[in-house]
């Protein structure tokens, strides 16, 4: 294990750790906000599906020498729209359609990258490499995260209504399709940003764990959202520290911390409901 004073040289702090912190906190925030809606709408799979599509697109973009982020974000937004439509209309059922669509995109990407012999570059995005992010990447993620955050806040009440009861929202004249699309687009942006840090394999759990943990503990939508954000950001910080100390992958460490917090919250919820029943 490394000791903290060994790692935390001033140079490391300013050049590597600070940008990682900024980008990490920003993306953790967005992921947890959207995660609450995804979990409650029973479409956690969309996050996973989008990360597959995102990874596939990244592979193709890198193989062709294009700017990875700038190509991937619009493609994943389009995929979010298609996945939503598929899950609304498909005879196969939403999750099957998502699985077919996203694994096909993934396969296409891997096919392209193996053809171009890119396995090492591309594996960064499989497992994430937050400490290797460039300054440009960090600014890009921070700006997009702020956009996601502001949009979410602006439409918070409507997102609640659409998440809680789609048919009532539709009946009272809310444009449910638009808000579903909005949620999907925000998810798409978050997934791509998160892929750089956490990796395609782990980003969907970054969205889902804080939401589920918060749902165990809270009874109001607003406190669920706020708790999810708090859990997500603190798990990120603890996970990052853990990975520095033990020299392990950041993404995996963050998710494991999330898992531990989830386990503790389940335990608390279990004890609470037991004692509640006894009363």
């Amino acid at each position: 294990m490394n000791s903290l004073s060994e790692i935390l040289t001033p140079e490391f702090l300013s050049v590597i750790l600070l940008p990682a912190l900024i980008a990490g906190i920003a993306v953790s925030l967005c992921a947890s906000l959207l995660g609450v809606s995804l979990v409650l709408k029973r479409c956690s799979m969309i996050g996973d599906g989008l990360s597959h599509v995102g990874y596939g697109t990244l592979c193709i973009a890198i193989a062709l020498g294009w700017a990875p982020m700038q190509v991937t974000i619009p493609v994943v937004i389009l995929a979010a729209y298609i996945l939503l439509r598929l899950s609304e209309n498909s005879r196969l059922g939403g999750d099957t359609a998502i699985a077919l669509f996203s694994t096909s995109a993934l396969a296409l990407g891997i096919f392209a990258s193996s053809k171009a012999n890119l396995t090492t570059d591309v594996s960064h995005y499989m497992f994430g490499s937050i400490l290797a992010m460039t300054k440009g990447d960090v600014i890009f993620s921070a700006v997009l995260s702020v956009c996601v955050l502001l949009t979410y806040l602006l439409f918070y009440d409507k997102i609640f209504a659409v998440t809680f009861d789609e048919s009532f929202a539709r009946a009272t004249g809310l444009n449910v399709r638009f808000y579903n699309l909005l949620i999907a687009v925000l998810t798409a942006v978050t997934v791509v940003l998160g892929m750089m840090m956490m990796g395609a394999l782990l980003i969907s759990s970054l969205m889902i764990f804080p939401a589920v943990t918060a749902m165990r503990l809270c009874k109001r939508f607003r406190t669920v959202v706020l708790t999810a954000v708090a859990v997500s950001v603190s798990c990120f910080l603890i996970g990052l520290l853990l990975s520095l100390l033990t020299d392990t992958a950041v993404g995996a460490s963050v998710i494991l911390v999330n898992l531990a917090v989830f386990a503790v919250s389940s335990l608390i919820a279990g004890i609470r409901s037991r004692t509640g029943r006894k009363k």
Binding site: D157, F160, A161, F164, D165, G173, L174, C218
Partner: peptide, 15 residues
């Protein structure tokens, strides 16, 4: 769904 009664009732005002 975790939501308080107040939150649910208020969502009726959105229209």
């Amino acid at each position: 769904f975790p939501a308080s009664v107040e939150e649910v009732v208020r969502s009726g005002c959105l229209n």
